[in-house]
Design a protein around this nucleic acid. Sequence first.
DNA 1: TACCCGTGGGA
DNA 2: TTCCCAAGGGT
Length: 364
Amino acid sequence: MQKALLAWYDRHRRVMPWRATAGQRPDPYHVWLSEIMLQQTTVATVGPYFSRFVARWPGVQQLAAASLDDVLAAWAGLGYYARARNLHACAKVVAKAGGFPETIDGLLALPGVGPYTAAAIASIAFDLPAVAVDGNVERVVARVLAIEEPLPAAKPLLRMGAAEIAAKVARPGDFTQAFMELGATICIPRNPQCGICPWQKTCRAYALGIQNELPHKTPKKARPVRYGHVYILQRADQSVLIEKREAKGLYGGMYQFPTSVWQSGVDTHSNGTDTKVRQEANIARKGLTGRDFAAIGEIRHILTHFELRLQVWHSTVTGTVAKDLAAGNNRKWVGLKTLEDYGIPTVMLKALTLVAPQGRRRNG
DNA sequence: TACCCGTGGGA
DNA sequence: TTCCCAAGGGT
C-alpha cells in the first residue's frame, strides 16, 4: 500500500508555493507557515497569501520582528484570525529559540500548533515518522477500512487506522503529503475517482460499493442569525472612521467600522415602531449620538456558527466633528487607499462596497 | 465535550 | 439558493 501511494505521488504530486521540489529538503519556516494558513482553508486561497508573507517576511526572525497589526493586515481575508495571532506569538518563541523544535512534543507546545500541524511539520520538514491526520486522511481511511462509525465520534478509530497504514513508512514527509493529496484529488468527498486510485484494490468501501456514502457524519446544528448595525462615517476626502476591536475573540485585534452589538434572534432591522429607539441606543452606545445617518442597505455574512445581518448606515462628517470622533474609542480616520494597511475583515469591506461600489476587492 | 472561531468556491 | 467543506486549534 505504502509503495503504491508513494509511486502515485512521485508521478502526480502538485506544485505548490510552499512545497519543495522532489528530493529537496523543505524550509521548516515555509512548512510551518503554510500549515497554519491551510487550517480549514483551501490550497487555492492560501497560495497568494503565502507568497506575500514569504516575500515580506523571508524568515521566522523577520516575522517575529513584525508588529501584530501588520501581520493581521497581511492575514486579512483568510479568516480565523486567532491563527494570525498565534502565528505571531509562535514566531517570537521560535526566533528566540533559534529554530523550530524537531520533536512532536516540542512542536505541540507552540501556539497554534495542534496534533495535526505538529505531525505535519515533523514529517514534512524533518522527515520524522509522524502521522498527520486531517480531513482528507480521515475520509480516505474511513473508505479504505470501510469504517461506518460517523464523524466526529470516529476520529480516534480513524487515527488508529491511519497510524497502521502509515507504520514504518520509508519516506514520512512524502507519505504525509501523498496521503492528503490522495484525499484532495482522488478520494474526494463526492464521486471519488476510484478508477485511477492507487489504493483501489485494497479499498474495502470500493469493494462494498459504499465509497460514496463514507464517511458518515452526524448532522450539524442550524445556524442562528445575529442582527446588528454598522456605521460608516466619511469625511469630505473620503477617508473613513475605523476602530480596533478587542484583542481576543471574534475578529480579535482587527479593525472595523463602528458597530452596534450583534444580537441573536432579534431582528433590529424591521420597521417596527421601536426600530428608531433601538438605533438611537446603538448609536449612543458608540458615542455617535446626533449624527444624521442614511440607511444604505443590508449585508449578509456567513460565519461558522452564525449568520450575520448588518444594516449599513452612512454619514458624511466635516472638520471639527471629525476630530472629536477620532478622539476616543481607539478610533482613527483612514483613507480608502490605505485601508489595506489595516486588518479589516471581509465582512467590513462588504459593508463598504455599499458606499463605494467600485471598491475594495482584496488581492486586486 | 461542545462550542467558538472566517471565508470562498463548488455542486 | 442552499449546503458542503477546506492540510484544525483553543478553551
